[in-house]
Simulated assay, not measured.
Amino acid sequence: MLTDTLSRFRLGTRGVAAVALAAGLLLSPGLTSSARAADSAPCTPDRNYPGTFLCPIWGSNVNLRSEPDPQAPVIATSPDGGLLRVECQVKGGRATYGDYWHTWWVKTPAVGMARSAYMSEIFLVGGGNDERDSGLPNC
């Protein structure tokens, strides 16, 4: 009789575990169709310049353009050091670089006589194609 009770308990435990596992898989955000790649290196607030953010970038001498469009004139290039100070992000023209593509652009702050410039988010570290940076507000 004790063996029958334990067998029913084990079967019941397996049944509950199976239901819990199935529910967990169905509710997991990683398995839903709206799931997106995680931004592994979001931009972070710049403590020295309130209202701006520091974004890790890859590449050097990346073109900064007058408008968020790959056909806009180049007005500067990214600084050395792997970080770019920005204000926000905005949708713009589709930029491509090899297998990468993006319609999101970051906007740099105007400084002195230098006006704001735009860089494609292709060159931000982390994220995926056409995925906005999780650390930045929209312009």
Rank of each mutant, 00 (worst) to 15 (best):
D133K: 00
K91G: 06
A23I: 02
G112I: 09
D46L: 04
G30N: 14
R94S: 07
T108H: 02
T32N: 15
N129T: 09
G98P: 05
L64T: 00
G127K: 02
A22E: 04
P109N: 06
G82K: 07
W104P: 00
I57M: 06
G51L: 08
L11T: 09
W101I: 00
L11I: 09
V19S: 00
Y49W: 14
S28K: 06
A22H: 00
L6F: 13
L21R: 06
M113T: 14
T96V: 15
G112Q: 12
V16S: 13
T3N: 11
T96H: 13
L83V: 06
W58H: 08
P42Q: 01
L54G: 07
D69A: 03
P45Q: 13
E67F: 05
R65A: 09
T5E: 13
C88L: 08
P109W: 03
G15H: 08
I122F: 08
P50D: 09
D80E: 15
L26F: 10
T44C: 01
G81I: 12
Y118V: 07
V16I: 15
V106K: 01
P109Q: 09
T103L: 00
W105G: 03
L26I: 08
R115Y: 07
H102F: 11
G127P: 03
T3D: 11
D46H: 05
N63M: 11
T103H: 06
L31W: 12
A110S: 04
A95D: 15
I122C: 08
T13D: 04
L25Q: 11
M119S: 04
I122R: 02
F123N: 08
P73N: 15
A117Y: 02
T108L: 03
L27H: 12
S40Y: 03
A23K: 03
G127L: 02
G51D: 07
T103A: 02
Y118T: 06
M113D: 15
T44L: 01
S34M: 09
G92H: 07
S28G: 08
V125D: 03
I75H: 09
V111E: 14
D39Y: 04
A76R: 13
A38I: 10
P79V: 14
V90R: 04
A18N: 09
E67D: 11
D133Y: 02
A72H: 06
S66R: 11
C55V: 03
F123G: 06
D4R: 15
R65M: 07
M1G: 13
P137V: 00
S116C: 08
